[in-house]
Computed example of a mutant assay.
Amino acid sequence: MVVPFSESGNIPVDMDKSPPGPDNLKEVYICRDCRKINIPGGEWDKHKKYLIKDVVNNVADALHEFTKILDENKLTYEIPSMITCKSRSHIFSVKIRADYDYFIDMYSHADFREVLENTELFKSEFPSRKIAIFNISDEFSDRDTGSEIEYYSAASKDDLVLKLRQYVNKLITSKEYRFGIDEFDNILLYGLEENNVYGIETFSSGNTLYFLSKFLMQGALNGQNGLYITTRYSPEYILKIADSFGINIKQLVNDKKIFIFDGNSSLEKFQHSESDIWKIRDHISKVISEIGKYITKYNIKRLVIDSIEPLEISPGEDSIRYLFNELKNLDCVTMATKYINNINSNSIEDMYFTGIVEIGTVIDLNSIKNIIVIKKFMIRDNSRRLVEYNITDKNTLEIK
Rank of each mutant, 00 (worst) to 15 (best):
L188Y: 13
R165S: 05
Y107P: 00
F184G: 00
E148H: 14
E117I: 14
F126R: 10
T202G: 06
T145C: 09
K170R: 13
L171C: 01
T145F: 07
E114W: 09
K163L: 00
D142A: 08
I187D: 02
I133H: 09
E176Y: 12
D159R: 14
Y152V: 04
I133E: 06
N135P: 02
E183N: 11
L171V: 10
N222M: 02
I104R: 08
L192G: 02
I104F: 05
G146V: 07
T119G: 01
S108T: 12
D105A: 03
R165T: 02
Y100T: 07
G180L: 07
S153L: 03
F184S: 01
G223D: 04
L192K: 01
V115R: 10
L164V: 01
E139A: 09
A154R: 03
M106L: 14
T145P: 06
N186Y: 09
F126W: 05
S174V: 11
D111W: 13
L216A: 01
D111C: 11
D182R: 15
L216F: 02
I104E: 06
E176S: 14
L188G: 04
E150A: 13
G191F: 05
R178V: 08
A220Q: 05
D111F: 11
G191H: 06
V161W: 02
T202E: 02
G226V: 06
G199H: 01
A154Q: 01
L121K: 14
G206Q: 13
I149A: 01
L160I: 04
N118I: 14
K157E: 09
G146D: 03
N196Y: 12
D105Y: 08
E194S: 13
N169L: 13
E201F: 06
S108H: 14
D185E: 07
F103M: 12
E117H: 15
D101E: 13
G206I: 12
N207E: 11
T145E: 07
E176H: 13
R143P: 00
L192A: 04
Q166E: 13
D185F: 07
I131D: 05
F112R: 09
S213M: 10
F215G: 03
A155W: 13
D158E: 15
F211T: 00
T145H: 10
E201P: 00
I200A: 04
Q218C: 08
F203H: 09
M217L: 14
V197W: 07
S174E: 08
I104V: 12
D185Q: 05
K163W: 00
D105N: 12
Y210F: 12
F112M: 03
A154W: 04
S141G: 03
D182A: 13
Q166A: 11
D159I: 10
P127Y: 12
L209Y: 14
L171D: 04
S213R: 13
G199C: 03
S156L: 10
L171N: 06
T202D: 00
E201Y: 07
L227P: 01
Q224I: 11
T119D: 02
N207T: 05
L212N: 06
N222T: 12
E150P: 00
E176G: 08
E194T: 15
G226P: 00
Q224H: 15
R143G: 00
D101C: 04
L116W: 06
I131E: 08
